[in-house]
Design a protein around this nucleic acid. Structure first.
Length: 362
DNA sequence: CATCCGTGGGG
DNA sequence: TCCCCAAGGAT
């Protein structure tokens, strides 16, 4: 390589001075000079796992108003925690969040461990979150390698290795760049850079603090990083969902098993969801015998690993109708207190719309 | 290491 | 419409 094309080494100082000018103001982020609240930092990191800032913000605000401290969260009933999380997705996060709060209170005197190793032992805290909380909340020299950092590093060093196998290598690069001072700001700066400059498509290389040392930029191959293995799409599954309204307006619901898909969340009764589900026999899967009416427009929903198409069937039940074993009638007034995932909100809305009596002529 | 686990928004 | 993906973790 000639002297003219040799690139300067990337420096943490350049990133930090960029961060001092362009850092994003976020509800869970301490202002310059303020000390961060580990509880808020931790909760935000859990919420932000695989979830956009836009989606998290309103949940975070409500969550902090409802559970202001780890102690408050630990003491809350699990249904209340799941309800506060409903709609955010990846519900095992909420279960682990609650379990983690209890562990912090019962095993750590209500204070979060201030090291990566200590944090790593808690439920829901993996390699990334342990590093992020250690760095951001306690200013420890830890690497927090998330999707943003993977993108920035693979571009900066033109790392050809495929993810997730390249993670250890990426981590080494981060540790090499990690400054002795302000490791917490460095972690946040790296993520801000990935989120606002070094974006997946159309990265703003011209205004990047690391434009000069970036190998991929020199080669013009920024958008080809990071290298990843393609993941295969799942087959569409089909099923029937049953919206049963009692005469007083209450709806029949139940709680899903604690583990697995939508674990611990509320739902209306449904059939199994299968690629080969036969709609003609749907009434056989109904929770009660009734005059089930099938709606023409199915509810479509896309999970991470498969698309789902649920056909909604509606029926009415008498005032004295009893809920089958393991199910309950919830009044319409309290329906919003049920921890319905987004899929079930769609189903219930479709069902209620169909059950609404036609407007009487003037 | 591969798979499972939600959701809503953007190109 | 379709595809990608966004501050990952558990198994």
């Amino acid at each position: 390589m000639t002297l003219a094309t040799r690139q300067p080494a990337a420096k943490a100082a350049d990133l930090l001075s960029w961060y001092d000018r362009h850092r994003r103001a976020l509800p869970w982020r301490a202002l310059p000079g303020e000390s961060p609240d580990p509880y808020r930092v931790w909760a935000s990191e859990i919420m932000l796992q695989q979830t956009t800032i836009t989606a998290v913000k309103p949940y975070f605000e409500r969550f902090m108003a409802r559970f202001p401290t780890v102690g408050a969260l630990a003491a809350a009933p699990s249904e209340e925690v799941m309800q506060a999380w409903a709609g955010l997705g990846y519900y095992s996060r909420a279960r682990n969040l609650h379990a983690c709060a209890k562990a912090v209170v019962e095993q750590h005197g209500g204070r979060f461990p201030d090291t990566e190793e200590g944090l790593r032992t808690l439920p829901g805290i993996g390699a990334y979150t342990a590093g992020a909380v250690a760095a951001i909340a306690f200013d420890r020299p830890a690497a927090a390698v998330d999707g943003n950092v993977e993108r920035v590093m693979t571009r900066l060093f033109a790392i050809e290795a495929v993810l997730p196998g390249a993670k250890p290598l990426i981590r080494e690069h981060v540790l090499t760049l990690l400054p002795a001072a302000r490791p917490g700001d460095f972690a946040q700066a790296l993520m801000d850079l990935g989120a606002t400059i070094c974006t997946p498509r159309n990265p703003a290389c011209g205004i990047c603090p690391w434009r000069d040392p970036c190998v991929a930029r020199l080669e013009g191959t920024q958008e080809t990083y990071p290298r990843k293995t393609a993941k295969k799409a799942g087959f569409t599954r089909y099923g029937a969902a049953f919206v049963l309204m009692r005469e007083d307006g209450a709806i029949l619901v139940r709680t899903r098993p604690a583990k697995g898909l939508l674990g611990g969340m509320a739902e209306v009764p449904t059939s199994d969801w299968r690629p080969d589900y036969e709609l003609d026999g749907a009434a056989q899967d109904a929770p009660v015998v009734a005059r089930w009416r099938r709606l023409d427009v199915p509810v479509r929903h896309v999970f991470t690993h498969f698309p789902l198409e649920l056909t909604v069937l509606v029926a009415r039940a008498g005032e004295k109708a009893q809920a089958p074993q393991g199910m309950r009638f919830t009044s319409q007034g309290r329906l919003r207190e049920e921890p319905f995932p987004s899929l079930m909100l769609k189903v219930v809305e479709a069902g209620l719309e169909a059950l609404r009596p036609p407007p009487s002529p003037p």
